[in-house]
């Protein structure tokens, strides 16, 4: 029995050794030179630090509850809200263009209820978009909530180069401040259902 099995085993071992030393196994190849991608935002994780240009317009500052300050940049944590919904988008992304009316509808729905409006704020971050391009998107789709530019892809890289649109909701006050409780790529469907889902998730 040994005589029958052993040659077969040798062949297999030889093939394995040849495979490994010929570079056929990916584990044998040198590590790729490209840097490791940052993780994509996920529920239960912290939102990575991000800097946004401080808005100049008084109405936007009022919406975000920002104090009068000479600071040139703000972070999401500076925004005065219990819940912060962040839309990662691009002016150039056809899916973001398609989703824009739904996000506007969500904003209007939130603003129509004073109690909810006091709890939730929405911002958008245009990845790889200049301030000009973000402005084009804002004007084209009549977006009422603040949009920020990430023209050098800094935030994009820090959030794992997510595909757009991508929605992130965080707790923005108290002990769970900065904790992600919703993170998903793609459209959110019905705005009323989504708002209710957000409120429910925030309570958990």
């Amino acid at each position: 029995m040994n005589k029958r099995c052993f040659p077969g085993l040798s062949m297999a071992a030889a093939a394995l050794v040849f495979f490994l030393f010929s570079g056929g196994c990916s584990g044998n190849r040198p590590a790729p030179a490209t840097p490791v991608k940052a993780p994509v935002p996920a529920v239960g994780k912290q939102l990575p630090a991000m800097l946004l240009s401080a808005p100049g317009r008084a109405s936007i500052r009022a919406y975000l509850g920002l104090p009068e300050t000479a600071k040139r940049t703000i972070s999401p944590g500076d925004i005065d809200s219990e819940i912060l919904l962040i839309e990662i988008f691009s002016m150039y992304c056809p899916y973001c263009q398609h989703e824009a009316p739904s996000v506007n509808q969500l904003y209007d729905l939130i603003q129509s209820d004073k109690k909810i409006a006091a709890r939730i704020k929405i911002i958008g971050i245009g990845i790889g978009n200049s301030a000009y391009e973000v402005g084009i998107f804002q004007e084209k789709y009549k977006v009422k909530f603040p949009l920020f530019a990430d023209d050098n892809y800094v935030i994009y890289k820090d959030i794992g180069q997510v595909r757009t649109p991508f929605f992130i909701a965080i707790h923005n006050r108290g002990a769970r401040k900065n904790l992600i409780f919703y993170a998903k790529r793609g459209g959110f469907g019905d705005s009323e259902d989504f708002l209710q889902a957000l409120l429910d998730l925030a309570e958990r």
Binding site: Y95, R163, T164, P165, R185, G186
Partner: peptide, 10 residues
């Protein structure tokens, strides 16, 4: 279907 409507292009 969901995929195609949400960044499926990429």
């Amino acid at each position: 279907t969901l995929f195609a409507a949400s960044g499926g292009f990429r």
